[in-house]
Computed example of a mutant assay.
Amino acid sequence: MIKKNLFVLFVISLMSTGVFAQHNVSLNIDGVASEQGNICFAVYNDEGSFLKFDKVYKSGSEKALKGKTSFDITDLPEGDYAIAIFHDANGNKNLDTNMLGIPKEQIAFSKGKMKMFGPPKYKECVFTVNSNMEMNISLN
Protein backbone atom coordinates (compact mmCIF):
# COMPACT_ATOMS: atom_id res chain seq x y z
CA MET A 1 0.00 0.00 0.00
CA ILE A 2 2.83 2.41 0.85
CA LYS A 3 4.55 1.65 -2.49
CA LYS A 4 1.32 2.38 -4.35
CA ASN A 5 0.91 5.71 -2.53
CA LEU A 6 4.53 6.62 -3.28
CA PHE A 7 4.00 5.81 -6.96
CA VAL A 8 0.89 8.03 -7.10
CA LEU A 9 2.78 10.88 -5.42
CA PHE A 10 5.64 10.42 -7.89
CA VAL A 11 3.29 10.64 -10.89
CA ILE A 12 1.60 13.73 -9.48
CA SER A 13 4.97 15.39 -8.88
CA LEU A 14 6.04 14.67 -12.46
CA MET A 15 2.86 16.26 -13.78
CA SER A 16 3.32 19.35 -11.65
CA THR A 17 6.95 19.85 -12.74
CA GLY A 18 6.08 20.21 -16.40
CA VAL A 19 6.47 16.79 -17.97
CA PHE A 20 3.10 17.44 -19.59
CA ALA A 21 3.70 21.18 -19.94
CA GLN A 22 1.80 23.34 -22.36
CA HIS A 23 3.58 26.32 -23.88
CA ASN A 24 2.64 29.59 -25.54
CA VAL A 25 4.07 31.06 -28.73
CA SER A 26 3.78 34.86 -28.87
CA LEU A 27 3.59 36.01 -32.49
CA ASN A 28 4.45 39.49 -33.72
CA ILE A 29 3.22 39.86 -37.30
CA ASP A 30 4.90 42.78 -39.11
CA GLY A 31 3.92 44.36 -42.40
CA VAL A 32 0.14 44.21 -41.94
CA ALA A 33 -1.15 46.38 -44.79
CA SER A 34 -4.41 47.56 -43.20
CA GLU A 35 -6.81 47.20 -40.29
CA GLN A 36 -9.37 45.49 -42.50
CA GLY A 37 -10.23 41.87 -41.69
CA ASN A 38 -8.20 39.45 -39.59
CA ILE A 39 -4.82 37.81 -39.35
CA CYS A 40 -5.52 34.07 -39.65
CA PHE A 41 -3.12 31.36 -38.51
CA ALA A 42 -2.85 27.60 -38.85
CA VAL A 43 -0.48 25.46 -36.79
CA TYR A 44 0.72 22.13 -38.21
CA ASN A 45 2.54 19.43 -36.27
CA ASP A 46 3.68 17.06 -39.03
CA GLU A 47 4.84 17.13 -42.61
CA GLY A 48 1.89 15.14 -43.95
CA SER A 49 -0.66 17.68 -42.76
CA PHE A 50 1.23 20.85 -43.75
CA LEU A 51 -0.99 23.33 -45.63
CA LYS A 52 -3.95 20.93 -45.70
CA PHE A 53 -6.99 22.76 -44.36
CA ASP A 54 -8.62 19.60 -43.03
CA LYS A 55 -5.53 18.56 -41.03
CA VAL A 56 -4.70 21.72 -39.08
CA TYR A 57 -3.48 21.04 -35.53
CA LYS A 58 -4.70 24.43 -34.22
CA SER A 59 -6.06 27.53 -35.91
CA GLY A 60 -7.54 30.91 -35.15
CA SER A 61 -7.62 34.56 -36.08
CA GLU A 62 -7.08 37.98 -34.54
CA LYS A 63 -8.28 41.41 -35.62
CA ALA A 64 -5.75 42.98 -37.98
CA LEU A 65 -3.89 46.06 -36.78
CA LYS A 66 -2.08 48.08 -39.44
CA GLY A 67 1.68 47.73 -39.20
CA LYS A 68 1.97 45.09 -36.49
CA THR A 69 -0.50 42.60 -35.03
CA SER A 70 0.49 40.56 -31.98
CA PHE A 71 -1.21 37.57 -30.36
CA ASP A 72 -0.50 34.32 -28.54
CA ILE A 73 -1.01 30.74 -29.64
CA THR A 74 -1.60 28.93 -26.36
CA ASP A 75 -1.45 25.40 -24.98
CA LEU A 76 1.08 23.81 -27.33
CA PRO A 77 2.79 20.70 -25.95
CA GLU A 78 6.51 20.27 -26.56
CA GLY A 79 7.19 19.33 -30.15
CA ASP A 80 7.86 20.50 -33.68
CA TYR A 81 5.46 22.87 -35.44
CA ALA A 82 5.09 25.02 -38.54
CA ILE A 83 2.79 28.02 -38.83
CA ALA A 84 1.06 29.47 -41.90
CA ILE A 85 -0.42 32.96 -41.66
CA PHE A 86 -2.46 35.14 -43.98
CA HIS A 87 -4.16 38.54 -43.79
CA ASP A 88 -7.81 37.88 -44.56
CA ALA A 89 -8.42 41.51 -45.51
CA ASN A 90 -11.93 40.94 -46.89
CA GLY A 91 -13.04 38.79 -43.95
CA ASN A 92 -14.26 35.81 -46.01
CA LYS A 93 -12.17 33.33 -43.93
CA ASN A 94 -10.41 32.06 -47.07
CA LEU A 95 -7.03 32.73 -48.62
CA ASP A 96 -8.00 34.39 -51.90
CA THR A 97 -5.92 33.42 -54.93
CA ASN A 98 -5.86 34.36 -58.59
CA MET A 99 -6.52 31.95 -61.50
CA LEU A 100 -3.00 30.54 -61.19
CA GLY A 101 -3.37 29.88 -57.46
CA ILE A 102 -1.11 32.77 -56.47
CA PRO A 103 -2.31 34.40 -53.22
CA LYS A 104 -3.96 37.81 -53.55
CA GLU A 105 -3.70 38.37 -49.79
CA GLN A 106 -0.58 38.78 -47.68
CA ILE A 107 0.89 35.48 -46.44
CA ALA A 108 3.79 34.32 -44.30
CA PHE A 109 5.23 31.23 -42.65
CA SER A 110 7.26 30.46 -39.56
CA LYS A 111 10.85 30.62 -40.81
CA GLY A 112 10.16 29.63 -44.46
CA LYS A 113 9.51 32.04 -47.31
CA MET A 114 7.29 31.78 -50.39
CA LYS A 115 9.16 30.50 -53.40
CA MET A 116 8.82 31.48 -57.04
CA PHE A 117 6.58 28.46 -57.69
CA GLY A 118 4.80 27.82 -54.42
CA PRO A 119 4.97 27.72 -50.67
CA PRO A 120 7.92 26.46 -48.63
CA LYS A 121 8.11 22.88 -47.41
CA TYR A 122 7.28 21.88 -43.82
CA LYS A 123 10.94 21.23 -42.99
CA GLU A 124 11.78 24.81 -44.05
CA CYS A 125 9.17 26.24 -41.66
CA VAL A 126 9.45 23.91 -38.68
CA PHE A 127 10.53 25.10 -35.25
CA THR A 128 10.69 23.37 -31.87
CA VAL A 129 8.59 24.37 -28.88
CA ASN A 130 10.03 23.34 -25.51
CA SER A 131 9.20 26.48 -23.53
CA ASN A 132 7.23 29.70 -23.97
CA MET A 133 8.67 31.61 -26.89
CA GLU A 134 8.29 34.70 -29.07
CA MET A 135 8.45 34.75 -32.86
CA ASN A 136 8.55 37.67 -35.33
CA ILE A 137 7.03 37.01 -38.76
CA SER A 138 6.79 39.46 -41.68
CA LEU A 139 3.89 39.29 -44.12
CA ASN A 140 4.70 39.38 -47.82
Results as ranks from 00 to 15, higher is better:
140 N>V: 15
136 N>F: 09
54 D>A: 11
83 I>S: 00
77 P>Q: 05
38 N>C: 08
25 V>G: 00
107 I>K: 06
82 A>T: 09
81 Y>S: 04
50 F>S: 06
47 E>I: 06
119 P>W: 06
26 S>W: 11
7 F>N: 08
35 E>L: 04
21 A>V: 11
7 F>P: 00
56 V>F: 03
103 P>L: 11
94 N>V: 11
119 P>K: 12
135 M>P: 03
72 D>F: 09
98 N>V: 04
13 S>R: 00
46 D>W: 01
84 A>E: 10
33 A>E: 12
100 L>C: 00
112 G>W: 02
123 K>L: 08
51 L>T: 03
117 F>H: 09
12 I>K: 04
134 E>S: 13
135 M>V: 08
17 T>H: 10
93 K>P: 00
74 T>Y: 02
129 V>G: 04
103 P>W: 07
91 G>L: 07
76 L>K: 00
82 A>L: 08
109 F>T: 00
3 K>A: 14
128 T>D: 04
35 E>R: 15
140 N>H: 12
90 N>R: 06
9 L>M: 12
94 N>D: 10
67 G>R: 11
41 F>T: 01
136 N>C: 05
13 S>I: 00
25 V>L: 11
136 N>V: 12
95 L>I: 06
107 I>P: 08
29 I>T: 03
86 F>T: 06
31 G>N: 10
11 V>R: 01
82 A>V: 01
36 Q>R: 15
37 G>C: 06
56 V>N: 01
72 D>Y: 01
72 D>Q: 12
52 K>A: 09
43 V>M: 01
61 S>D: 14
75 D>S: 14
130 N>K: 14
19 V>Y: 10
18 G>C: 06
104 K>T: 12
58 K>Q: 15
139 L>K: 04
14 L>P: 03
84 A>R: 03
77 P>W: 06
130 N>T: 14
65 L>H: 12
20 F>R: 03
89 A>V: 15
53 F>N: 14
137 I>W: 08
101 G>Y: 02
139 L>G: 06
113 K>P: 01
92 N>R: 11
113 K>R: 13
11 V>Q: 02
51 L>C: 07
